[in-house]
Nucleic acid binder design. Structure first.
Lengths: 383, 383
DNA sequence: GCACTTTGGCAACAGCGTTGCTTAAGTGGC
DNA sequence: GCCACTTAAGCAACGCTGTTGCCAAAGTGC
């Protein structure tokens, strides 16, 4: 039973079946090419081996799972290894950044099979940007043969700035007022003929990283690029909050009555941090970022911190070490156990595009987030 | 299904039954004395009317629900109103504060039926404090006749400072080093013969307020007393984090390199806020509190803020207005809709004791939190 | 008094995971 | 080479879930 918001849902037999199937499918996905045996699935889900057998039989019949070799015997019949069938479905990830667009086609396992990056000014007229984005989607689909229409589940689009994840309407992409109130989801769905999900870049990246994490622990993804934002993963899914605006990390006040910030406030982390970057004092930038991160860790008792974004990518170790130092010092003071690990997400901005594709795939695996709706409407999931 | 942490749980028929029964029971509880009809239960849960009939029949057979009158007809057979039977079970709430202990016996509906407050120095030897607490529990049970042993589900204990909710061991109650590592749950369970759950005072209060809230929206409870802490309610349940230490709100850095705080850090909200209180500048205290609160609202996109604690209770309006002003100004700047409402929890510290009792009751209603374990062990819930 | 509406229980049912047992497929002793 | 043993996985029967179709109960309104 899932950490979805609200408490409406009564459960019936189909929802129970779907829940367990998602759970198994998620474990298969997490196991990757290594695969996983039926008995291990049973142990991990708490279901009986017989129930897992029934569920995997259905998944195999639907082409989502397949047997793939067997393990060494431990004194009896050896376990059969099951694997997710990656090409049972695909999704498109789309990253609309301030100065360029990247589209990626990933398979069910999350592996990218085609990528395209094109320069694109997010400040151009909306119709132009949407048109270019739709073309990028078509291109990346054409790049990968054998991915017919019905096997592409949808498009996940990630972009900076506040937006409403539920209805896919942008609020106010910082610096580009023409996007205010623009129904991006609808427009993209119409142009691509595919279901579309829209989310903030930080949320997309966080979701992608969450699906790759071996443990299910809560973590925060801190993205430092042209701005500073966060994606929060609580309980296995992205935490979006009441109005899907969570992750407003950059305009956290870190210095009461400090220097003015572009947002109109004073002493925001983003302003302090980027000012330090601008004057070349990366150690100070890392210290400021670390202080805000430590605030977050204390407030939510988060288990892990992941840094990302272009600015971080340029000097990974400086930021990782600087943030780690602040977090460790605070943990020592409070004496509540070892400090949380601090890592850097590899690949600069790449986690954003790949995570965007996961906006579409995640619901299949029971991860938080409602399935996308739109024209060519996503039929009931194949299981 | 439920926002529990981790993603282990496969679901079977008993768990499905339990889930739906909890859901119905929670709606009955929320309806209070007003009651609720079968058909409304069906609408709210999404279950069929027939399923609700079956579930409520079981609940009535077990003495947890009862029919209570009927509504006006709308042209046909009038709806029958169902209500929770409050005296079907009880729980004890215990608030161990720095200078006193309060115990309360509440019924299944959360209504207090007996209260006792005794002065008690939390700095006294552990055995002494536990003994006095256990006596308080016995006293409050004796105060309410007709509440035999098997109908008291357990004791929920709330106290300040970091602790491990999972195993009930205290970490370091600020200012009282003798509690460091003390297994409070075990000790209290042994002395009272009842299952015990231990949690931070802020979490207990937040849980109690969450159960009373009409909507299921996320909110934060900010407690300003001798210290400053927060309780977070996300997705209907208390968010405790990886090591059950979430809510560390007071030692959030709000002023880089600011004045030193007792915790060893610099520029913590708690230090800034309490310093302002000490010099009588309540408006500034409220502004500082509001700034930290606005950080929290932005980060989590929380839907509501509730203030509490003795310091707030002494000047409710000053704090409510001061915090509201900061939050509203930030909302205006960011332009993401109306600011979140700011209210004060009535009754000073009372939400803490009553919320403590809910630590025991909440699992019955499917709210986050594992059921208590301990001697005299809580048998399977009565439904 | 009769037609109609709405509530809510009864009975039959489909489908879920579970249990008990059987078959498959290995290892290791002799 | 054979047999006893162990472990994995499927088959069949089962108990229990919510669902569906139907009917009795209990009102309103002409």
């Amino acid at each position: 039973m899932n950490r979805s918001s609200g408490r409406s849902g009564g459960a019936n037999l189909p929802s129970l079946r779907h829940h367990n199937a998602s759970l198994v499918l998620d474990l298969l996905r997490a196991a990757g090419e290594r695969g996983i045996s039926r008995l291990e699935l049973a142990e991990r889900t708490g279901l009986t081996p017989q129930a897992v057998s029934k569920i995997t039989t259905r998944l195999r019949a639907e082409g989502l799972a397949a047997e793939a070799g067997r393990l060494a015997s431990t004194g009896g019949k050896p376990r059969t290894v099951l694997r997710l069938v990656p090409d049972a479905g695909y999704a498109v990830g789309l990253h609309l950044d301030r100065d360029g667009t990247t589209a990626v086609l990933v398979d069910l396992a999350g592996t990218p099979v085609a990528t395209r990056t094109t320069p694109l000014d997010l400040g151009a007229p909306a119709a132009e940007v949407v048109g270019a984005a739709a073309r990028a989607v078509q291109t990346v689909r054409a790049d990968a043969p054998g991915t017919e229409d019905h096997r592409v589940f949808g498009v996940g689009a990630a972009l900076p700035g506040p937006l409403d994840h539920t209805d896919g309407v942008l609020h106010r992409v910082t610096g580009f007022p023409q996007w205010d109130g623009y129904p991006l989801r609808e427009a993209l769905a119409e142009r691509t003929g595919l279901p579309v999900v829209v989310d903030k870049d930080t949320n997309a990246a966080a979701l992608g990283l969450a699906l790759r994490a071996p443990d299910g622990a809560d973590f925060a993804y801190l993205h430092l690029g042209t701005g500073l934002g966060a994606g929060l993963v609580l309980g296995g899914g992205v935490h979006r909050g009441a109005r899907t605006g969570a992750g407003e990390f950059g305009h956290q006040t870190l210095q009461l009555d400090g220097p003015p910030c572009g947002c109109g406030g004073r002493g925001c982390v983003e302003a302090l941090c980027l000012a330090a970057v601008a004057r070349g004092d990366l150690a100070e930038a890392a210290r400021v970022l670390g202080t805000a991160a430590a605030n977050l860790v204390g407030l939510l008792d988060i288990g892990r911190l992941v840094l990302g974004g272009r600015t971080v990518a340029a000097d990974e170790d400086v930021y990782a070490d600087g943030v780690r130092a602040v977090v460790e010092e605070r943990a020592r003071r409070e004496g509540t156990g070892p400090a949380v690990p601090v890592t850097v997400a590899p690949g600069g901005d790449r986690p954003v595009v790949e995570g965007a594709a996961h906006l579409v795939l995640a619901p299949l695996f029971g991860r938080a987030g409602e399935p996308p709706a739109g024209p060519g409407g996503l039929a009931a999931p194949p299981y």
